[in-house]
Amino acid sequence: MQTETRFDRLFRTDAGERDAFALDGPACPPPPRPGGTLIDAITGLAIRLSLAALLWRWARSNAQTPRDWTDLMAWALPEPGFVAAVSYWLPGGGDQAFAAAAILAAVSLVALALAAGLLTRIAGFLTLAGALWYAVFILPEAWTSAFILAALGLYLLLRGGGPLSIDFATLRLTRFH
C-alpha cells in the first residue's frame, strides 16, 4: 500500500478531491521572528543605550582623565581612590592597580558594545553578574539599584538587543535566526 504524499494531493486532476491539507502553504505574511517586533526594537534600544550611558559614565568617573584622547591606555588608568576600593573589594594577592584597570577596560568595552548592539547577550550577562556581585559583596545597602541593573541585564541576556542591533542583523544575514 502506497501512502499519498502532499505532492499527490496538491496535483490531483480532480479539483473536488483537493483538501485543505494540500493547499496549506507557508503562512502569509510569515509570523514575526522572536525579538523582531517594534516593541522589541524600542525596548532593546532604550535598555542598551541607557545601560551604555550608565556604564560609560561610571568608567569615566573612576578613571583618570586622559591628556591625549588618542592614547587608548590612558582610558583605563584608574584613579587612586578606585584602586583602593578594588583592594578592599578583592582582598588577597595580586596587583590591585592591574585589577582596577582591567575592570575599567571591561566596563568601557561593555558600554561600547551595548551602544552598538554587538554581543548584547554577553554584555547582558556581564551586567547581571556585576550587579549581583555589587549587591552581595560591595554595597548590600544599595540592593535596589543593583536589582534594577540585574533586571536590565537579564532582559538583554534573554531577549537580546532587538532588531536595531548588530547582533540581530548578523543573525538575519547568516540565517541563524
Results as ranks from 00 to 15, higher is better:
residue 22 A to H: 08
residue 24 D to I: 11
residue 24 D to L: 14
residue 25 G to L: 11
residue 26 P to V: 14
residue 26 P to T: 15
residue 26 P to H: 12
residue 28 C to A: 15
residue 29 P to Y: 11
residue 30 P to L: 13
residue 30 P to E: 10
residue 30 P to I: 12
residue 31 P to N: 13
residue 31 P to T: 10
residue 32 P to N: 12
residue 32 P to K: 13
residue 33 R to W: 06
residue 33 R to I: 08
residue 34 P to Y: 04
residue 36 G to L: 12
residue 37 T to W: 09
residue 37 T to R: 13
residue 39 I to A: 13
residue 39 I to W: 11
residue 40 D to F: 15
residue 40 D to A: 15
residue 40 D to P: 13
residue 42 I to W: 12
residue 43 T to V: 14
residue 45 L to P: 13
residue 45 L to S: 14
residue 48 R to T: 08
residue 48 R to K: 14
residue 50 S to R: 08
residue 52 A to I: 01
residue 57 R to V: 04
residue 57 R to D: 04
residue 57 R to W: 03
residue 57 R to N: 09
residue 59 A to F: 02
residue 60 R to V: 15
residue 60 R to K: 15
residue 60 R to M: 10
residue 61 S to T: 13
residue 62 N to R: 08
residue 63 A to K: 04
residue 64 Q to Y: 11
residue 67 R to K: 14
residue 67 R to T: 15
residue 70 T to I: 07
residue 70 T to M: 12
residue 70 T to Q: 13
residue 70 T to Y: 13
residue 71 D to H: 10
residue 72 L to S: 15
residue 72 L to C: 14
residue 74 A to T: 07
residue 74 A to D: 10
residue 74 A to I: 09
residue 76 A to E: 00
residue 79 E to K: 06
residue 80 P to S: 05
residue 80 P to Y: 07
residue 81 G to D: 09
residue 82 F to N: 00
residue 82 F to S: 00
residue 83 V to G: 02
residue 83 V to L: 04
residue 84 A to P: 04
residue 84 A to D: 12
residue 85 A to N: 03
residue 85 A to I: 05
residue 86 V to P: 02
residue 86 V to M: 00
residue 86 V to C: 01
residue 87 S to W: 02
residue 87 S to G: 08
residue 88 Y to I: 11
residue 88 Y to Q: 06
residue 90 L to G: 00
residue 90 L to D: 08
residue 91 P to D: 00
residue 92 G to N: 04
residue 92 G to I: 05
residue 94 G to C: 01
residue 94 G to W: 01
residue 94 G to A: 02
residue 94 G to M: 00
residue 94 G to P: 01
residue 95 D to H: 00
residue 97 A to W: 03
residue 97 A to P: 01
residue 98 F to Q: 11
residue 98 F to R: 02
residue 98 F to Y: 09
residue 98 F to G: 10
residue 99 A to P: 01
residue 100 A to C: 02
residue 100 A to R: 01
residue 101 A to W: 01
residue 102 A to W: 05
residue 102 A to R: 06
residue 104 L to N: 01
residue 105 A to N: 05
residue 106 A to L: 07
residue 106 A to Q: 06
residue 106 A to Y: 00
residue 108 S to G: 07
residue 112 L to A: 07
residue 112 L to Y: 10
residue 113 A to C: 09
residue 113 A to H: 06
residue 115 A to G: 06
residue 117 G to H: 08
residue 118 L to R: 06
residue 118 L to N: 03
residue 120 T to D: 01
residue 120 T to F: 08
residue 121 R to G: 03
residue 122 I to L: 12
residue 122 I to Y: 06
residue 122 I to G: 11
residue 123 A to E: 02
residue 125 F to Y: 15
residue 125 F to T: 12
residue 127 T to N: 03
residue 127 T to Y: 04
residue 128 L to Q: 03
residue 128 L to S: 08
residue 128 L to D: 02
residue 128 L to R: 05
residue 130 G to N: 03
residue 130 G to F: 00
residue 131 A to P: 12
residue 132 L to T: 13
residue 132 L to K: 09
residue 132 L to G: 09
